[in-house]
Design a protein around this nucleic acid. Structure first.
Lengths: 191, 191, 191, 191
DNA sequence: CGGTAAGCGAGACGGTACGTCTTGTCTTATT
DNA sequence: AATAAGACAAGACGTACCGTCTCGCTTACCG
């Protein structure tokens, strides 16, 4: 009883093609941003036919989401400093550090797709944002257990942290840097 | 004697065309959302040639921004209840109330465009977001004058309020309703 | 076992689209003349996308030339009456008879395109005029073999015959009818 | 009884504008050929408004025709050598000599316009070709008077001469040079 | 000498064709 | 059955020219 996937007849799906597509999607999103991220370009760059692309993914965002999951993009580790302020500071510093130019463009691609289509937004929320919210939520739960924060406000804190991050990323209202991380950590810890 | 405008020779710009374009852009953004908002569609709906459209606006977002400025979209009045919590509650309730489905789609169109292109983002920030931030900023300044809030945190409060709003709008993380308004008002007032 | 064509992978070219385009081009040229013959109109009429049109043809004239070759437009048969005068009379009568209003408009479309662009002119010359010149040239060679005409003048005779035909067609200097055919036949035979 | 034109009130037509338009049209036709000869370009180059252009001319060809008449373009002088062959040779050599590249492009512009529109063709025929035909016709009449040629064939000779010229010009079937002039002169004189 | 009228430049307007691009679907031969 | 190759219909993109239109300014005449 091996988990062989019970493959039927016919040519098996090409792992090579799958990898190439995922890599191409990430690279394009990071290099060219939302404008250059098209199904056509992904297929071209991956050396894969559009037919294959559309067979397995229905939109560029599915590709990107798959790629990020596959690459384990969500690797901001959960700190444990003993205090909410410390935990937040560490977590947000790591978050800010991960936001190089390419990553910013990738996230902007996600935001553009989410804003443009409700289904896409929900997919991104459930497959990408959820993990980040869960991680930060864990930090806040721990703090609530220590009495450092009102558990009823945990949800709003999530919105504040990630809301301000995306707000800055999308509308270029300000940088997402260590200053931001410190300020947000302090404000949330005092909530 | 004052609004002479010093018009030169040549046929004057058609106010009729301008109005029709602005109305068409707003209507399309509200009805069809980001997907249906194309230069072609705006021209068609406004009964205006593409030539004319491109003569005065270089992208759909410029049109929408002009339309919103022209329509005085930013009509959330500044309340004055005497306390920050009260002011915030009133302001955010009014904000939430203004977010009907059409308006939400319009804002999503803006967000999609901002995420996709830096110049567009900056234009939206300076021509649209700035007024909202200024209004809310005024409330916070007043509160800072009364000692209700640390003036150094006013900027972050702006990010939190509008960040959470856009975050919910874009990623459908939650509604922007009276519950949201109350929660945010309370949290910000306690900051 | 012979007409294998060695077709590679990929969806084969649509014969239906090709036929529709050729028919549309001929119909438009015959009905509307040079003015109505646009790539847009051909695509519209053929029920074909502009993409497809431009993939296979780079200009309206290529389409028309292909259509004429495909339709075997050059169907004036070579007569053999025994004398040059007889041959010419028969050939030119047939030529004049083929010049109904639609055909005239089609030829005018060709002339307009040839006059406007050298490459187009050469394409028309080599792909369309050449066959007519060859046919008439054969008649003249035969006559030269019988000693009826100076072989050195055959080239000029071609220019005279077709030159006068196009001259009349383009500048409306006179009709291309049986009178013309008789006059030209007599003059050339006497050369 | 002066030819004062009985000018009424109002600003008189600008001779400067008229000259500039005619010069621009000729220059454009000679430099850019049929493709570059647009009303827009003529107005631009002449420093004249499109309004003015359309007030006095209804199409680019009217402009070009006016320009050629104004410039006295038809200056091939009538030779008188005593024999038809001599006259023809001289006349056609002069004709060939006048056909530099710019002139050829100008004539091609005329041909393209004539082929594309019947009214235009008739205008060109009556205002431009007629003079050439008359000149050559005179030569032939003279020859007929001397018994050198059948007067009934004069019309056809005109078609042969100018037909072969335009045929070569339009379809690039061959050069219009001294060789052509000699060949045509000999053939026509022998008719 | 002041009024009237036409010409002019400038340039905006609705229309339409251009040639290119991306989308999502489809049809083949090959693996 | 999956692949690559690539054709296809649809339709938006931004540009160009068309012929018309409305302005303010200029340049004549005519009363």
């Amino acid at each position: 009883m091996v988990d062989e996937e019970a493959r039927g007849p016919g040519r098996p799906r090409s792992e090579r093609a799958r990898q190439a597509v995922l890599a191409a999607a990430l690279a394009l999103a990071a290099e060219a941003g939302p404008a250059g991220l098209t199904m056509e370009a992904i297929a071209r760059r991956a050396g894969v036919s559009k037919e294959t692309l559309y067979r397995w993914w229905h939109s560029k965002i599915e590709v990107v989401l798959d790629a990020m999951v596959d690459r384990g993009q969500q690797t901001v580790p959960l700190p444990d400093t003993g205090t909410l302020a410390g935990d937040l500071r560490a977590f947000l510093h790591a978050t800010a550090d991960s936001l190089d130019l390419g990553t910013a463009r990738l996230l902007q691609s996600l935001a553009a797709a989410a804003a443009a289509d409700e289904d896409t937004a929900i997919a991104i929320r459930d497959r990408f944002l959820a993990a980040r919210r869960a991680a930060l939520g864990q930090l806040l739960q721990r703090a609530a257990g220590r009495g450092e924060i009102d558990p009823g406000r945990a949800g709003l804190a999530l919105d504040f942290v990630y809301g301000s991050l995306w707000y800055r990323l999308i509308f270029r209202v300000g940088p997402v840097d260590h200053q931001w991380a410190d300020d947000v950590a302090a404000a949330i810890a005092a909530m």
